[in-house]
């Protein structure tokens, strides 16, 4: 009865077991991830509006994207979040981690404090920051400025200040995670390297630039990948910090994900929204491939 089983080698049996367990996530990924991804390529070639049957319109949505000034603006905003957010957050995270690593007193408690914002709901945090930025009489920042005799700042009501103002809580929220990863990276560097360097008479700065930073490279690459994807997909902060979630004023803070959301679930223009999604997918894919290559090139 079990003859077929006996004919299998141990290796084959192991493979069957492995695939048996893997089948669950594989099926899940195929149905929940890959199938919709491929279907969205198809939808992006239609004028589907949820209500009526889709018509095939070739690349009309992509042509429209090319000629849509708002799309280029939101694309620019998205890269602004990325180009400001990733280096600033990594720099702050590294500095904090570098010094936190040397602190022995209440180290665990301090680390937990830095990690806390990462655990907080983005929506709640965004609203608290939204109120921080309000004008007098309710805005904390402006009340401080006014008390010290400075002029009020428009913050979220300015086309130039709003994007950095929204980026600040996004950076702050991700900081805890990055610090913990950096700490792990710092701890992984064998202390014998430092001892050898000190014996050779290397200074603090030299140790930092010649040993610590080069050896942290895999950590840095990992964090760059993760935080880049995070900033490219920024949504919660913008949606909750701008009135009616409009990414204003005058689209100056609108990231591509918010534009996709508006096009899809406000205007019910699914075909056009999906075309934008495909572009975002390609951007994420390219950036990830570049970064993976950097990892491999180590």
């Amino acid at each position: 009865m079990f003859a077929w089983r006996d004919r299998l080698t141990v290796g084959q049996k192991l493979a069957i077991w492995a695939w048996g367990f893997l089948a669950v996530p594989v099926v899940f990924y195929c149905v929940i991830r890959f199938y919709p991804t491929f279907e969205s390529f198809a939808i992006s070639l239609t004028d589907w509006d949820v209500l009526s049957d889709p018509n095939f319109i070739w690349f009309e949505n992509y042509v429209r994207l090319w000629n849509d000034p708002v799309f280029w603006q939101v694309l620019g905003n998205t890269f602004m979040y990325l180009l400001l957010g990733t280096p600033i957050s990594l720099l702050i995270a590294f500095v904090v981690a570098y010094y936190l690593d040397q602190v022995r007193f209440m180290h665990g408690f301090m680390r937990a404090l830095y990690f806390l914002p990462f655990l907080t709901t983005a929506v709640a945090m965004a609203w608290v920051w939204r109120w921080f930025y309000q004008p007098v009489p309710i805005g904390t920042f402006n009340n401080i400025l006014a008390t010290l005799g400075f002029a009020q700042q428009p913050f979220l009501r300015s086309t130039t200040q709003a994007l950095p103002a929204i980026l600040a809580p996004a950076i702050w929220a991700g900081l805890g995670f990055q610090i913990v990863i950096f700490l792990a990276g710092l701890r992984a560097i064998p202390s014998s390297y430092y001892e050898a360097a000190r014996i050779d008479g290397a200074g603090k700065w030299q140790i930092l630039t010649e040993i610590t930073i080069p050896l942290l490279r895999p950590t840095v690459v990992f964090l760059v990948v993760i935080s880049s994807i995070g900033f490219l997909r920024i949504f919660d902060q913008v949606f909750n910090m701008t009135p009616q979630g409009d990414g204003g004023p005058l689209n100056s803070t609108k990231p591509i994900v918010l534009y996709i959301y508006e096009t899809g679930f406000d205007a019910f223009n699914m075909g056009y929204a999906t075309a934008q999604t495909v572009i975002l997918f390609l951007i994420l894919l390219i950036i990830t491939l570049i970064q993976l290559r950097l990892l491999r090139g180590r």
Binding site: R157, Q244, D246, G248, P249, L250, E262, D266
Partner: peptide
């Protein structure tokens, strides 16, 4: 035809004058 989009046009109309 799309109330939120049409409202947004009014929001932007005022902001262009006030902010730009």
């Amino acid at each position: 035809v799309n109330e939120s989009a049409q409202r947004q046009l009014m929001v932007d109309m005022v902001d262009r004058v006030l902010l730009q």
